[in-house]
Design a protein around this nucleic acid. Structure first.
Lengths: 351, 351
DNA sequence: TGGTACGCTTTGAGCGTTCAAATCAGGTGG
DNA sequence: CCACCTGATTTGAACGCTCAAAGCGTACCA
C-alpha cells in the first residue's frame, strides 16, 4: 500500500521534502533548513542531507511553499497588444529585462491580459487576492492614469515603470528621464553646429509626450535658441503618415529647421520620409534624431535616444522586493543618445 | 483571540472558503461545489451561498487550489532576448495571443528566461517538477532543435510553435505554413506580370529559412519560371547590411529580377535600400515582398506575408489543454499576404 | 551536583483547497 | 414498519511546505 502510494506520486511528480528526509534519516524541517537556513544545521548533517537532495533531484513544490509562506514569488505583468501603427514597442525588451532581473531571486512573471484599465485593475486585484502574485508591475502610464490610485485603494502592491503627472509621490515608480534624453539630443545637434532645431512631438496630453516636448523646449532655451526655434514645434499622431504631414509644416516655414528631434522613432521615420520627398537628404541636408532606439532606427541608421531598459527592469524588481537601496532621486534613469548617420555630420553652412 | 486571528488574516488577505461557509451557515465543501459543481447543490442553497460569495468578494486561493489539485493552471514560456539586428520580432504578438487565449480557461503564462537551450530545458523541467507550471510552450525551433527531445525525455509536457525538420511527429506542434506563404507571394508577383522573381533568403540550415526558400522554388517551378529564376537565389545573414550586399548580387546579374521575395522583413528592408542605392524605385522598378509583416513593413509600405499569430496562440493553448479538436493536418496554419505599394503595381514592360 | 544556557534537531499546527468517503434526511417499496 | 435508495450536505484526510515552539543532548558555571 505504501509502495503503491509511492508509485502513484512518482507518476505525478517529483520527490517531496518528506521523501528526502526519510532517505536521509532526518526530519523534514532539517531538510528545509539545509535549503533555506544552512547555518542552523551542523555542517556534517548539512552535507549528508545535501547529498540526498542531489541524489533524488529534489525540487521544492512552489505551490506548497507559496501556500505555507503566503507569498508566491510571482509578479503580475499586464501584457498589452502593440498599439496599431507603432513601431516595435520597447515592451518586449522591458519584459525580458524584468524576467532576467527576477531570475536571481527566484521570482517569475505571470502575464495577464485585459480589455481596458478597469479590467486590468480588476484582474490584478483578483490575482493578488487569490495569491497568484505578490505584486504587480504597471507600465505605459498616461498623465492621469487611474490605475495607480485604483490599485492603491485596493491595497494591491505595485511598482510603476513610468509615472503619472500628479500624485507621483504616492506610489513607487521608476522612470526614464525623457526631459534629459531629448535635452541630450538637442545638445548633440547644437554641438554639430545646428541652430534651427525643430521638434515633432505627440499631441499634448500624454505624460511621456509632454515631457519630451518639455525636454526640447528646455534645452532650446538653455542654448538661447528660443527666437530661432520656438516656432519649429509641431505635433502629430503616433503614425508615419501623420508625422510626414507635420514635418512638411516644419519644412515649409520661412526659416526651416536644419535638424529635427522627434518624440518617437515612428515620428522620426515619418520625418525621414518627408525629408526625402522634399528633396532633402537625411544626414546631410537635415539631421534627424528619434526616440526609443527601436530596431527600425538601427535598420534605417537613425540616431535615437535609447532608454536603459535593462537597468529599469532591475530597478523595478528591486523596488518590488523592497531591496531598492537607491535614493528617491535616482528613480529617474538617464537615457543614452545613440548617434548614427542621420545626425552625425556637422551642419551644412547654409544653416 | 479568534477576533485577533481574523483581523490578522484580513490584513494579509481575502476571505477563505471557510469564511464564506461560516457566514453562509454551510460547510466548506458546499461552497466549493457552488463554485465548481453547481449541479450538485440544491438551487436554493446555491443562490444563498452565491450571495455570500459575492458579498465577501471571495476569491479562491490559486496556490491552495493548485496544491490540492496538483495542477497550477500555469503555462511556462521562455522569453528570449530580441536577436540583435532583427526587426521587431513577432514574439510579443504571439505572447499576447497566448495570454489572451489562456484567459478564457483561467490559464496564465509564467515567464522564465535562460541563457541557452540546455538551461532552458533545465529551467522548464524544474518549474514543471516544482509544480509551478503544468506545461510549457516552446517556440523559435530550429531544424535540429534539441529541446523537444530533451523535454520528451524529462517528461515535461509541451506544445511547440514551429517544428524541427525531423521527428516532427513525436510531439505536438502548431506551425505556420512557410512554403505556402512564400508561394502566395510568388503567385501574386506572377499575377502582376513579373517573370524574373528573385529570392533573398537566410543561409541554409534553419528550418524556417529553408522552408521559405523551398516555398519560393516550388512556386517558381509551378509557374514554370525555373529557367528565368533559378539563378536569382541569394542568401544572406539576418541583417540589413548583409541583405543589401546580397541584393546587389541579384541586381548585377545579366538578367536581373524585376521582383524580389525576401525571407524576412529585415532582408526586405535591405533589398529596398539596395534598390534605392542602385537607382531603382521600389514598387515601380522593382517589386519587393517581405515576410512577417512587422510594424516596420507597414511603416515602409512594404508588402509582406503575415502570420496568423492570434490563431496560432489559440491553437497552441487548445493543444496544451487537450481540447484541440482540429485534425492533425490543420496544425499547419496559412499565412496571409498583405499587399502594399512595394509590390502592388503591375510589372513594367521592360520585364 | 543541579540548574541553565546553547546548538542542533524534531514535532505540532496550519496555509486554503479538493477529493473521496461518510452522514443525513426524505422518500419508496416490500 | 423497517430496510433501502437517492439526492444534498458534511467530514476527514490529504496536497507539500514553513513557522513557531518544543525537545534533547552536551557543556558550562555556581
Amino acid at each position: 500500500m505504501d509502495a503503491l502510494e509511492r508509485r502513484e506520486r512518482d507518476r505525478a511528480n517529483s520527490p517531496t521534502l518528506q521523501d528526502v528526509a526519510r532517505v536521509a534519516g532526518v526530519s523534514r524541517q532539517t531538510v528545509s533548513n539545509v535549503l533555506h537556513a544552512p547555518e542552523r544545521v551542523r555542517p556534517a548533517t548539512r552535507e549528508h542531507v545535501a547529498k540526498f537532495i542531489e541524489l533524488l533531484g529534489y525540487q521544492p513544490n512552489r505551490q506548497a511553499q507559496a501556500l505555507a509562506r503566503s507569498a508566491s514569488r510571482m509578479i503580475g505583468y499586464l501584457i498589452k497588444p502593440l498599439a496599431h501603427g507603432a513601431l516595435a514597442s520597447i515592451n518586449d525588451r522591458f519584459l525580458h529585462a524584468l524576467a532576467e532581473a527576477g531570475r536571481t531571486t527566484d521570482h517569475h512573471l505571470v502575464l495577464f491580459s485585459a480589455e481596458d484599465d478597469a479590467a486590468e485593475v480588476d484582474t490584478a486585484s483578483r490575482l493578488y487576492r487569490g495569491g497568484a502574485v505578490d505584486t504587480v508591475v504597471l507600465h505605459g502610464l498616461t498623465a492621469d492614469d487611474p490605475r495607480p490610485t485604483a490599485l492603491l485603494k485596493l491595497g494591491v502592491p505595485f511598482v510603476a515603470f513610468g509615472r503619472t503627472e500628479s500624485a507621483a509621490d504616492a506610489y513607487p515608480w521608476i522612470d526614464v528621464d525623457n526631459v534629459a534624453g531629448v535635452g541630450a539630443a538637442v545638445d548633440h545637434l547644437v554641438n554639430r553646429g545646428h541652430r534651427r532645431i525643430g521638434f515633432v512631438g505627440w499631441l499634448a496630453g500624454d505624460t511621456i509626450g509632454d515631457r519630451r516636448a518639455r525636454g526640447w523646449r528646455t534645452a532650446i532655451d538653455r542654448h538661447e535658441l528660443g527666437s530661432a526655434c520656438h516656432a519649429l514645434d509641431v505635433r502629430s499622431e503616433e503614425s508615419i503618415a501623420s508625422a510626414v504631414q507635420s514635418t512638411f509644416h516644419l519644412l515649409e516655414q520661412p526659416d526651416p529647421p536644419t535638424a529635427i528631434v522627434a518624440a518617437t522613432d515612428t515620428l522620426a521615420v515619418g520625418a525621414m520620409q518627408a525629408a526625402q520627398r522634399w528633396g532633402l537628404e537625411v544626414g546631410r541636408d537635415l539631421a534627424i534624431v528619434g526616440f526609443d532606439d527601436t530596431p527600425t532606427a538601427e535598420a534605417l541608421d537613425l540616431s535615437s535616444i535609447r532608454q536603459p531598459i535593462e537597468l529599469a527592469g532591475q530597478r523595478v524588481i528591486a523596488a518590488l522586493l523592497g531591496t531598492d537601496t537607491a535614493s528617491p532621486t535616482s528613480r529617474l534613469l538617464d537615457p543614452q543618445l545613440i548617434i548614427r548617420s542621420s545626425s552625425a555630420r556637422p551642419a551644412s553652412p547654409r544653416s
